[in-house]
Amino acid sequence: MTEHVVLRRAVLIAGAALLGAYLSIAALTQTPLNPVKLRYYDEMNALTEPYLSQNWMLFAPDPLSDDRGILARAKCANGRATGFYDVSRPYVARVQHDRFFPSRINRLVSGTITQMDSPDPVLARLRNKEMEKKKRPVPLLPYEKTSRKEAETFLARYSLSQLSNVCDGSPSAVQVRMYVHELPSWSRRKDSSARGTTRFEDLKWRNAEDVG
């Protein structure tokens, strides 16, 4: 097609300029922390959210290296508390045995815990420096508190849905225990007795009616 040459040229050049602008903005929101990003991040991010939002950190800077999950127990109407049940492991086992498009239910827990552990990069760097200097780190900011509370409610609700058979099918409250099992490090890879260490955090009891 040899007609409309000027129009085709104009569209190609304008489109290339638009594409260049998009890529510059996307690159600026995605680069590791640097002075230009610190200065313009909010403006650039406002342009890309929500439809052009992206995150290409993909197992970086350090990949996930521990086994994270939750246990949960319920309180029955008579006040008796059940033992802890592992409510995340069965879905991880499902993923391990299904290599072709496995169900993603396991991500409800792992994704939520990861989100709770992924602060703003600037705040993370500030807190790390304060820890190195043995100072008191910056406390959680209001929005961080809100998102953590939402995540805790979500985990409680998820656990309640997984404990539907306990207490004759109507538990009155639920408690979540988050655990992080740090696997043996590289230097102990040949040590068959190495088991790693496990940390856990018990969240508050939540009434079934409040989270359901």
Binding site: L64, Q96, S110
Partner: peptide, 14 residues
């Protein structure tokens, strides 16, 4: 990095 990530149960292929 591969040593660490491949042992995480969620990403492990038994």
């Amino acid at each position: 990095a591969l040593f660490y990530v491949l042992r995480v149960p969620e990403f492990a292929f038994p």
